[in-house]
């Protein structure tokens, strides 16, 4: 049994960490901090956790030593206190963007400011097990993953891994996302009359998660276009890429089958009948599965690669718990077996 605490437990990713870790047979939650909700029961902020725990939010200054410390704060916070946190816990999982990028200059380019603890960047392993399983098993510092980046990276992983894509050519990602990507804080765009029914392209290109796609897949010209849609949870990445027309459909199947067989959280969805023939995020709400799919126009080499996830799960807290499992030597899927709901 390991002792885990969460810094920033009142946000959506913090709430998901609490839900997952409360049901984890090898984890005891020691503390969850929140300045805003200090002293309140965590279920008063995360109502689904009522009768699951009597834990109250602690003050950040009252953090005690533990085995694994999850940092679920807004971007830009963890890097200023990383030495303090490292003194409290042997292992750190930071869900923010602070330690995802390995190169300080790349961080500055995409986040617009110099990193406050650049010497820490290369201590962290990017926390997507499908890309870094062995490294995660042998580290104590794991970064979070960007939800949009995760959908893009997993959509293209079978093709990149099998060498079926020229990494120098453009890859166009169209990403549709739910409102929980914006976090628990409100803004004018999240006001119900403005958000309800929305289909709004809020980032045509240049989104920060692009840096994670470049870093992790070595794609040199990825373009991410991101649109808000009327979901609370969920992200669907649809990638468009031209591949060699000499590649056969059987080679594509082989590439996808290999990746899905190696990774317990990946599923291939490519059906000929029924409603759910392609990946769809709706049925993944609350699940750590990522559903992959593809369609290919053999005549011109146009391949459409798809990946659906729950942005708060595979795109954040679920991948963090999956990484924790690997780091601690637990079964990779421990506490993560929920398959989602249907109908929903």
């Amino acid at each position: 049994m390991i002792r885990a605490s969460i810094v920033g437990g009142s946000g959506y990713t913090g709430g998901e960490l609490l839900r997952l870790l409360l049901g984890h047979p090898e984890v005891e939650i020691m503390q969850a901090t929140s300045q805003k909700h200090l002293g309140e029961y965590v279920y008063q902020t995360h109502p689904n956790l009522r009768k699951q725990t009597s834990l109250k939010f602690s003050a950040p200054d009252d953090l005690e030593p533990c085995d694994v410390l999850f940092l679920a704060m807004p971007h830009g916070k963890a890097q200023h206190h990383i030495n303090q946190y490292a003194a409290l816990a042997e292992a750190i999982m930071d869900l923010s963007a602070d330690f995802r990028l390995q190169d300080p200059e790349t961080y500055k380019k995409w986040y617009g400011a110099a990193h406050a603890a650049p010497h820490w960047l290369d201590k962290f392993v990017y926390g997507l097990p499908e890309l870094h399983r062995d490294e995660i098993k042998h580290t104590k510092y794991i970064s979070g993953v960007g939800c949009n980046a995760t959908a893009c990276n997993l959509a293209m992983l079978p093709l990149v891994k099998a060498g079926l894509v020229n990494l120098g050519q453009p890859v166009i990602f169209e990403i549709k996302v739910g409102s929980s990507e914006g976090g628990a804080s409100v803004n004018p765009g999240s006001h119900h009359p403005e958000r309800s029914g929305v289909v709004r392209t809020f980032s045509s290109f240049g989104h920060r998660h692009t840096a994670e796609v470049i870093q992790e897949l070595n794609l040199q010209k990825p373009a991410l276009t991101i649109s808000s849609i009327d979901l609370v949870r969920g992200a669907l990445a649809t990638a468009h890429v031209i591949i060699d027309t000499h590649i056969t459909k059987k080679e594509l199947w082989k590439a996808y089958r290999a990746v899905v067989n190696e990774n317990p959280c990946l599923r291939l969805v490519k059906e000929r009948r029924g409603v759910y023939r392609v990946p769809e995020p709706k049925i993944l709400a609350g699940s750590n599965y990522a559903d992959l799919g593809f369609e290919w126009d053999a005549a011109n080499g146009h391949l459409v690669a798809m990946c659906a996830i729950d942005n708060l799960m595979k795109g954040a807290s679920g991948s963090a718990v999956q990484s924790m499992n690997l780091m601690c030597g637990f079964d990779e899927m421990m506490g993560l077996s929920f398959p989602g709901l249907h109908p929903i």
Binding site: W253, R257, L268, K270, E271, R272, R273
Partner: peptide, 8 residues
Amino acid sequence: VCPDCGVD
């Protein structure tokens, strides 16, 4: 039915 691709 093929269990992978769903073809008959």
